[in-house]
């Protein structure tokens, strides 16, 4: 474990916590008989969260952590896997099933057909992988899928007029975690013999590059202290 990877995992954890906080905020609004103005805004405007991206991430974790009960690596590793699995599936459940949270989900805007991402990633994983075994192919599939899983969310953000800052922070943290992982791979490449994983590295690089324009608008909105807005 190195500082880049720990920072990456913590950033990833933060992104999940921000999303859970946002869902909790929406839920708690409903409890009030006369919703406060913030609640009114939250409940009326779309949450800006893409259910498609959340479903893709649940699939990423489900196919990535198949070995959670067979290969024990460390307590930290197992706990983090359980957190990511549990949170991604519960977020999907909330947006799909929870009577209040799903009202804040704008399915008319979140129209990205994520099937078009799943199939090519699966085909690519069947062709390019480190070992043609069931677990290895699904693990490789999860890497390819994670690289593109943010696309529905980024497209939804372009369509959402006012991006509330929790959603903006969520996407920023999600992009930052993989950027930190790239530093971790560089560090491990130079410090550990025969640590070479091209598939992981290229997928991680593509994933981070997809956030490039978001990062640009995110930092310029911070610098100019204006509302985050992505060009359509």
């Amino acid at each position: 474990m190195n500082i880049f990877r720990l920072a990456g995992d913590m950033t990833h954890l933060m992104s999940v916590l921000v999303l859970l906080l946002k869902i909790h905020t929406i839920k708690s609004c409903a409890g009030k008989s006369y919703p406060c103005s913030l609640c009114f805004i939250l409940l009326e405007s779309s949450s800006g969260i893409s259910l498609k991206t959340q479903e893709l991430y649940a699939l990423v974790f489900a196919t990535r952590y198949l070995d959670i009960f067979t290969d024990f690596i460390s307590v930290y590793n197992t706990i983090m896997k359980l957190i990511f699995l549990g949170s991604s599936f519960s977020i999907v459940w909330y947006i799909r099933r929870h009577k209040i949270v799903r009202r804040s989900y704008d399915k008319d805007q979140d129209t990205f057909r994520h099937f078009f991402l799943v199939l090519p990633c699966l085909l690519l994983a069947l062709i390019i992988n480190e070992k043609f075994t069931f677990k290895e192919v699904l693990w490789t599939f999860s890497l390819y899928l994670e690289a593109v899983a943010i696309l529905p969310q980024l497209i939804l953000l372009q369509r959402t007029r006012n991006i509330d800052n929790l959603t903006g922070q969520y996407v920023f943290l999600l992009g930052a975690y993989r950027a930190l992982y790239i530093l971790n791979w560089i560090y491990r490449y130079f410090t550990e013999p025969h640590y070479v994983h091209w598939i992981t590295w290229i997928s991680g690089l593509v994933q981070t590059l997809l956030y490039a324009d978001f990062f640009y608008y995110y930092f310029s909105s911070l610098k100019n202290n204006v509302k985050l807005k992505l060009p359509a």
Binding site: D9, D67, D71, N77, K131, W139, T200
Partner: peptide, 10 residues
């Protein structure tokens, strides 16, 4: 050992 090494990340 090599395989074990590869999958120690989240």
């Amino acid at each position: 050992e090599e395989c074990f090494h590869a999958k120690d990340e989240l």
